[in-house]
Amino acid sequence: MANQVNVFAQNQPGRLERLTEVLLEEGINIRAITISGADEYGVIKLLVDDPRKAFEALQREGFSAFMKEVIALVMDDQPGGLHRICRVLGESGVNVEDAYGFVFQDRKTAILVVEVENVSAAGEILGSKGLEFLSDDELYSL
């Protein structure tokens, strides 16, 4: 399984700057980032090359951070790629709590990162249906 770092941040100028500064100092590379806001605060979700290191550095710098296990599903970067994944998710009764996707530069592979309630149970079901997902290491060696 892959890990993502969720960070609580106030919706204020300069907060993202401080957060990315911490990651820069640690030499962390970011694969993907999403921000969901709720009025005056929000949650920043980071997919990075060394989630444990990023998490610990952010905590040390006073951020309210959380490591969260996610499923990084591999898709074909072509029409119908996402649909195929979603059909399996639906058929398997796996409810997606949050998700985002990104494509690799080779334009052949795309990744759908999904957050579900029970990661290991969902992983088993999806694996048995032939879906491929990546660990942290695999995600960054791509």
Partner: peptide
């Protein structure tokens, strides 16, 4: 102040 142990990383938990 929202300390790390108060939530598990989701906006809706904060709400």
């Amino acid at each position: 102040e929202v300390a790390g142990e108060l939530w598990r990383g989701e906006v809706r938990e904060l709400n």
